[in-house]
Amino acid sequence: MSFMKKSPWVIHYDGSSCNGCDIEVLACLTPLYDIERFGIVNTGNPKHADIFLVTGAVNAQNVPVVRQIYSQMPEPKVVVAVGACAASGGVFHDCYNIIGGVDKAIPVDVYVPGCAARPQAIIDGVVQGLAVLEAKRKLLAEGKLEELEQKDQLPPLPPQTHVKEDQA
């Protein structure tokens, strides 16, 4: 963790997960795993956050919410997709209301496997996210805004979503 220059704050949003990964994300914050000792704090405000933890797949209703939170986060920012559902849809991949993994809605930097993802894996995912965060911070410091913008560009809105692009 020698590359950790600052205490990253995380924001957690539950896409359409079954709670299994959510409670494991919360378990990371509590005494047994305690990521708070590294200065990692769970915040409710997207403007305070550096790392966006998303659990669960996206559906028509929550795509705008996920994109909204993502676009409100200040640069540099990292997205960690937690669990099999967030990566690809998982066991629910062929449900009629599931669009797919979180990468259908926002660009994802780190994928954490598991159903439910274990706390150790989530912490590892966050640590790997820190390296990405540091790389993005460098880009920002060097003024390579175009490259950064390209990395953080939102994918096109999935056709299943009911809202228009300007609302999402």
Partner: peptide, 27 residues
């Protein structure tokens, strides 16, 4: 916001397999 439509998945999974989906109604 979390609707997945997993009740309809019984048509795609065998009844013995569906236990795994039923467990994921809620973690």
């Amino acid at each position: 916001y979390i609707h997945r439509g997993l009740e309809k998945l019984v048509e795609k999974r065998e009844f013995k397999e569906y236990v795994f989906i039923a467990e994921r109604i809620c973690g």
